[in-house]
Design a protein around this nucleic acid. Structure first.
Length: 489
RNA sequence: GGUGACUUGGCCGAGUGGUUAGGCACCGGUCUGCAAAACCGUAGACAGCGGUUCGAAUCCGCUAGUCACCUCCA
């Protein structure tokens, strides 16, 4: 079997994954800014790195997974230039900024739990790491890569670029940045338009503010990830992930900050997931064309034909490679829903298979091919396609076109369970065993047995009446040779 | 304007210089009292135009279209 290879944005190549300090792996992923509900795009990032986390653990690595909650700092692009996002929302609703943060953090966690995303090992809040961020600014200052201007501190990109390479991650050149950087508030304080803030002096309206030797203010846009990544994973760690839209300037600047402060490259493998588009356009808060996860789960959005379960969303996302753009559509979600059902149904079928003396199927080949795909930069679509080969195999065995030995069947089941639940992180959405469910299921069985009797007596009027009424209630009846099976729709 | 990427069958979406990705839909079949569900099966593609090659959807060039980053963003 092959070894894990990861596409590294820094080198633009797939590289063999070799942790700095095996068997430990440090992974940092840029988390959400909690000033609104998570949308499909957040789900993609979270699920992408959930797979990375799950698979690394499956491979036996000891992973520390850090993902931040951004609750302070980032500037907004509208009339309120310079005003903090969290603060703006708070002003609108007349609540405390931290109240907004708490509200949306809880909802974010709830969404992620429904998607069966494993919580990171550490989820640091930016607001809880102000001293660390200030310390980092001081360090950069001491090393001569920052300057103070009117109470704010800026990163001296030009100076840094003389000694290092600003633009290595995103493939940008300083000369190009001269012409293309937009005019923003505070520009006159900077030596160059592409310099970025490390510490920003707060104006009198600003609610979220902290004291520092430079001014009463708040930390710059890119600082928190550098500071918190360093604190929990060290000055050099293995994987840093995030959306492709963070590549520049956010991640580029993170590298610069770390190198400027400590002279060492902070991250070995940079990973970026692509975006979800809607009608071919990026889904984002600023474009206001996003579908929140709550809407997706409930169907309450005019773009949605129906509601889609969290596992359907998960499957939809994993059926595309994480580095490709993925376009939202109802048809695609519907297809994902069906496909996932078939996969889960085959897992149930695999529990009922009869075994034989000989196997006519090649389990090893499927398993090896599947893992080869996963090892090739987490190619989940190909991985899933091999799961469907296994689905077909299971169904063939059931109808007697193929046979399998006890040993092979155990191997196959082990593989499928590990793949579907442990690695891909699906859960069976039907299996919530409550007393109520037990009672309903007994009742349905009772009614369907009455129907079976009616059928035996050729009383089709009764049997069809029962069938129609149960169908109306959303119960899918599956007549089989032995009798019946059923499912709640 | 600069940089990067994309264009695959009805829809979604992988991939590679020569061999069926896969899912959904459609159509055909098995099962059924009839259906449904389930399962099985067939068919269908690589934006256009040139070039390299024994052979290209896969490499190169041009054309058209789309997107992303350059501004907070997953």
């Amino acid at each position: 079997m092959s070894q894990l290879n990861i596409y590294n944005t820094l080198t633009r190549k797939k590289e063999k994954f070799e942790p700095i300090n095996p068997p430990f792996v440090g992974m940092y992923v840029c988390g959400p800014t909690v000033y609104g509900d998570a949308h499909l795009g957040h789900a993609r990032a979270a699920i992408t790195f959930d797979i990375v986390y799950r698979y690394l653990k499956y491979l036996g690595f000891k992973v520390r997974y850090v993902s931040n909650i951004t609750d302070v700092g980032h500037l907004e692009n509208d009339a309120d230039e310079g005003e903090d996002k969290i603060q703006k929302k708070a002003r609108l609703e007349e609540v405390e900024p931290m109240e907004v943060v708490q509200h949306f953090t809880i909802r974010y966690h709830d969404n992620m739990a429904r998607l069966n995303v494993i919580r990171p090992s550490i989820e640091p809040h930016a607001s809880g790491h102000i001293p660390e961020q200030i310390e980092l600014v001081e360090k950069i200052f001491e090393n001569g890569y920052a300057y103070e201007s009117n109470g704010s501190v800026y990163f001296d990109v030009l100076k840094y670029n003389k000694d290092h390479n600003y633009g290595k991650l995103s493939g940008r050149k300083i000369e190009e940045l001269y012409e293309t950087t937009r005019k923003l508030e505070g520009q006159q304080e900077k030596r160059n338009s592409f310099d970025f803030a490390l510490w920003k002096k707060a104006d009198e309206k600003h609610l979220m503010r902290w004291n520092s030797k430079w001014s009463n203010g708040y930390p710059g846009w890119h600082l928190e990830c550098s500071a918190m990544g360093m604190k929990y994973l060290g000055k050099q760690f293995d994987i840093h992930g995030g959306g492709i839209d963070l590549q520049f300037p956010h991640h580029e600047s993170e590298i610069a900050q770390s190198v400027a402060a400590y002279g060492s490259e902070p991250v070995k493998y940079w990973m970026h997931n692509n975006l979800i588009t809607i009608n071919g356009q990026k889904m984002s808060k600023s474009l206001n064309n996003f579908i929140t996860l709550y809407e997706l789960f409930s169907g309450e959005n005019s773009l949605l034909k129906k509601e889609y379960s969290p596992m359907t969303v998960r499957f939809f996302i994993l059926q595309a490679h994480y580095r490709s753009p993925l376009d939202f559509s109802n048809d695609a979600l519907l297809a994902a829903e069906k496909g996932l059902q078939r996969l889960i149904a085959a897992l149930e079928t695999s529990e009922k298979l009869k075994t034989s003396e000989k196997s006519t199927v090649d389990i090893k080949k499927i398993i090896n091919s599947a893992f080869d795909a996963l090892n090739d930069d987490f190619n989940t679509p190909i991985f899933i396609s091999f799961l469907f080969e296994a689905v077909k195999m299971i169904n063939f065995i059931r109808i007697g076109n193929e046979t399998i030995t006890q040993f092979d069947l155990e191997e196959l089941k082990k593989f499928l369970n590990a793949s579907v639940f442990e690695i891909l992180g699906f859960k069976n959405e039907k299996s919530s065993d409550t007393d109520n469910l037990k009672l309903s299921s007994d009742l349905i069985n009772l009614i369907l047995n009455i129907r079976l009797d009616a059928k035996k007596n050729k009383d089709f009027a009764t049997s069809d009446l029962i069938r129609n009424k149960l169908t109306e209630l959303g119960i899918v009846i599956k007549d089989t040779k032995e009798g019946f099976e059923w499912d709640i729709n």
